[in-house]
Write a protein that binds this DNA or RNA. Structure first.
Lengths: 342, 342
DNA sequence: CTGAAAGCGCTTACAG
DNA sequence: CTGAAAGCGCTTACAG
């Protein structure tokens, strides 16, 4: 009884043409108030809902956007609760504009055929690198995109990035301020132009500024996942006389790291100070609570949608810039403390 | 150059009719090998991709499913990383069947018009109660659904539940086995038929079995969120001479609880033993690592998709039962320890 | 203010 | 083995 009500049925019952029904539905054209209410009444009664596919077929618009996340990099999406918060931000923003969100995991071979297949209105793309084939394919699609955490060099692209360099700088500076001089970093893969790359740059800047020499041995390129953090702890064990602080480029990896250190008899912050990155919602509840670089992930999601909708149909709330840099801040908590000679 | 290639263009260039092109695309009807390869060649060259909306208009199928999550209950979805893992499970399962996943947050007023609007093929619905209006609307939609964590009484519905009662029982039994007699529970709202309700039932069964009297004062119906856990800790402070263990019905709330206890000078497990529920991926990395009831959330997602696809077109991998109960197990870690007289 | 008609891109009987 | 034609549900000029 539910499914097959179409604009024709409405038209028949209301004794009008389908064009008129269409006009009523869309509030277009001139229709007499009488007709409008007559038609609307029948629409109500029959629980009529216009078919998205029929509309889409005319418009070539789908009112569908996708959040595209690379599922390749282990330990990035797998366990970062962070993305859930981001996607929630996107979904809730999109809902207010009657746009729905498809979730898309891609791997390096993705050809994005679904984009045209479904006439997607736009894409929010998380963490791509500009030299990858995936990125090139994306561009050739020629549809509205917002790139997140991708640090694209071309200013024509709409993108949202964190001020990662500042984050790297702030965290490091904080540790230096506490008297630490031998500061390790758990960076994840350091691909030029990537998020971790910029954080690392910030780290280096802070070191330079304080006249602390750079030491490549202090850079751990382990995955910024919980396991990555845990594994690094073992390696750090052998450095323990030297390293007094570690800056982990994700909170999740900091958790693994702290636990790993614990398991080899080192405690935080007594033996080592730790700074994380992200400020995921439970970092402040950990024991010790985590000193970290805070970013507003929900805002990131919301800005991303607005920026995208703005490109699609101008309904965004007037974000005029193509490139938004989200500020970071330092949340000082218990996992970092003053350096003490041993 | 990309967008407007249609079946007509292919037909023209291949000197065949659009019907033939359609047949080639779908591998239907009889088409000569020559024609097939000629058509396919042109399809390749033009990067033709069939329009999902046109197909959908004919079929009334969309190859789109939705994961429907109620955004009402604060502290459930907001911060449980758990759902992210679930959704990933669904997405990856769906992808293998060329079905895409829409993420849908709903509130109590949702009328599900998008379901017919988009001709969704099916729904995976998380945590609804059968007496709610939302549930009734869902049923009147008359489309394939799989209900998760909903414990529906009608066996005709396809559903996947955890053995929540067993979970509640196991966790409590574990604490009793350690010598605890005054065991608090952080349950979240105890609505009959809900997940927490069954866990609580299991808790009661374990108590009865050991001849421990039930004490309503030990049941904290705080939200099983991190803040809920934290707040309960304050209240528990006044009971501290009595309560020696707490069973929190989510790991997330256990984290908040442990921190809350810490902040009032109680440490885990020295002063109180804690058991969580879910076994989210970092529970084992916490200090102390969390004793918890483990459930396989990724499996839950995958079974959900299979069950749904099976209903839709029989491509699921032959799950014949309508109702799947996922087993739980106990992961004993550091947050629980033997009861000691004070 | 309203309607008849074309057309979006596809699939599906039906002829041949 | 292939093609002409109808039709899925809608929107959009265009007449009137």
């Amino acid at each position: 009884m539910n499914n097959k009500v179409s604009i024709k049925d409405i038209a028949r019952l209301a004794n009008v043409s389908i064009a008129t029904v269409s006009n009523v539905i869309n509030g277009k054209g001139r229709v007499s108030p009488n007709t409008v209410s007559k038609v609307n009444k029948i629409i109500q009664e029959l629980h009529f809902v216009p078919s998205a596919s029929a509309r889409s077929l005319k418009d070539m618009k789908s009112h569908l956007i996708a959040v595209v996340v690379p599922f390749l990099e282990k330990g990035m999406l797998q366990d970062n609760p962070f993305y859930w918060e981001f996607v929630r931000g996107v979904e809730s923003g999109a809902r207010h504009h009657e746009v729905q969100v498809i979730l898309l995991g891609i791997d390096e071979n993705e050809d994005f055929s679904f984009v045209r297949q479904r006439h997607l209105d736009g894409l929010i793309v998380v963490g791509v690198f500009e030299h990858t084939p995936a990125f090139q394919k994306l561009l050739s699609l020629d549809i509205p995109c917002v790139f997140l955490d991708s640090h694209l060099s071309n200013p024509d692209f709409h993108q949202i990035d964190l001020d990662d360099e500042a984050g790297g700088y702030l965290g490091t500076k904080h540790l230096i301020g506490l008297g630490h001089k031998v500061i390790g970093v758990l960076t994840g893969k350091l691909e030029e132009g990537g998020v971790n790359y910029f954080r690392h740059q910030g780290y280096l800047r802070a070191l330079r500024e304080s006249g602390i020499p750079e030491d490549p041995e202090l850079v751990f390129e382990e995955s910024p996942s919980i396991q990555g953090g845990y594994q690094v702890a073992q390696r750090i064990g052998s450095y323990k006389s030297k390293i007094s602080a570690i800056f982990a480029f994700s909170d999740v990896s900091a958790i693994g790291l702290i636990r790993g250190l614990h398991d080899i008899g080192l405690s935080v912050p007594a033996n080592l100070s730790i700074v994380g990155f992200d400020d995921i919602f439970y970092s402040q509840y950990l024991i010790p609570s985590l000193t970290t670089i805070r970013q507003d992930i929900v805002a990131k999601g919301q800005i991303a949608v607005k920026m995208l909708l703005d490109q699609i149909d101008g309904t965004g709330l007037g974000i005029d810039k193509r490139s938004v840099k989200i500020p970071v801040s330092l949340a000082v908590r218990q996992s970092s403390t003053s350096y003490k000679e041993i």
